[in-house]
Structures are given as structure tokens and as C-alpha cells.
């Protein structure tokens, strides 16, 4: 029977010490422990979440990068193409320009040559006329009053020269 009869002393001590221990542990152990565990769990969850987010962001950044690179590549291709076109155009333009210029130079040269030739011819003509005059003078000196037919012949000669 004693086994199932609670003793008054034991009830008293259990009630007293259990209440005290419950209060002390609640205030100084359970509350801070549970709070810290919760805080840490929240922290870990947040960290995991932000890691996930960072990963996503990284992936996004990477795809963005790819896109940018692709765009840049395209742009480069366009630029290169344009440059090639410009180059070709410049070359062809230059060629045309050069042709025109060359034509001009040739023309100039031709006219210059023509001029020179004319001058030379004039000079020769003058020389010839001078020589002719001299010759005529000499002939005239020799047979001025002699023969009218000779004079005629000289004149025809000069005429021939002049025609040239």
C-alpha cells in the first residue's frame, strides 16, 4: 500500500523545487535557447534563399551576357560589312577619280604638247621665213633684177612652206 501512497514530504519538496526549476529554466534557459534556435533557423533559411536568388541572378546575368555578346557580335558583323562596303566604294570612287584625274592630266599634257608643238612650229616657220628671207636676200642680191620668173618661184616656195 505504501507504494501507492504519496508522502506529504515528497509532495511538498517536489511541488516547491519543480516550480522553482520550471521558473528558472523557463526564464534563463528555454526562452533564450528556443529564441536562438529559431533565429538561427531563420538565418539559415534566409541564407539558403538568398543563395538561391543569387544563383538565379547569376544565371540571368549569364544569359544576359550571352545576349549582349551575341548582339555585339552581330553589330560587329554589320560594322565590318559596312566597312567593307565603304572600303569598296572608296576604292571604286578613288578609281573613278583617278581615271578622271588621269584623263585631265593627259589632256593637259596633250594641250601642252600641242602648244609646245605650235610654238615650235611657229618658231620653225619664223626661222624658215627668216632663212627664206636670207636666202631670198642672197638670191636677190645675186639676181634681183635679173629674172622675174625666179622671183615668182621663190614666192611659190614660201607659200608652200607657209602651207605646212
Amino acid at each position: 500500500m505504501e507504494l501507492v501512497t504519496p508522502g506529504i514530504g515528497l509532495i511538498f519538496w517536489m511541488l516547491l523545487s519543480f516550480t522553482l526549476v520550471l521558473i528558472i529554466l523557463k526564464k534563463y534557459a528555454w526562452k533564450p535557447i528556443l529564441q536562438m534556435i529559431k533565429e538561427r533557423e531563420d538565418n539559415i533559411e534566409n541564407a539558403l534563399k538568398s543563395a538561391e536568388k543569387a544563383k538565379e541572378e547569376m544565371a540571368k546575368l549569364q544569359s544576359d551576357n550571352e545576349k549582349i555578346i551575341n548582339e555585339a557580335r552581330k553589330e560587329r558583323d554589320i560594322v565590318l560589312k559596312e566597312a567593307r562596303e565603304i572600303k569598296d566604294k572608296i576604292i571604286s570612287d578613288a578609281k573613278v577619280q583617278a581615271g578622271v584625274e588621269a584623263g585631265k592630266i593627259v589632256e593637259n599634257a596633250k594641250s601642252l604638247i600641242q602648244g609646245e608643238k605650235m610654238a615650235a612650229l611657229t618658231d620653225i616657220k619664223n626661222q624658215i621665213s627668216f632663212l627664206s628671207v636670207e636666202i631670198a636676200e642672197k638670191i636677190l642680191k645675186k639676181e634681183l633684177s635679173k629674172d622675174a620668173s625666179q622671183k615668182e618661184y621663190i614666192e611659190s616656195l614660201i607659200k608652200d612652206i607657209n602651207l605646212n
Binding site: 508522502g7 506529504i8 514530504g9 515528497l10 511538498f12 519538496w13 517536489m14 523545487s17
Partner: peptide, 14 residues
């Protein structure tokens, strides 16, 4: 008799 002794079980409890 009110017996509030520190018995074996009370000591173990403490």
C-alpha cells in the same frame, strides 16, 4: 506527524 525530511528520493530530486 508532518514529515518534510530530505529523504533519499527528495535528495535525488534535488
Amino acid at each position: 506527524l508532518i514529515d518534510l525530511s530530505i529523504t533519499k528520493v527528495v535528495l535525488e530530486l534535488l
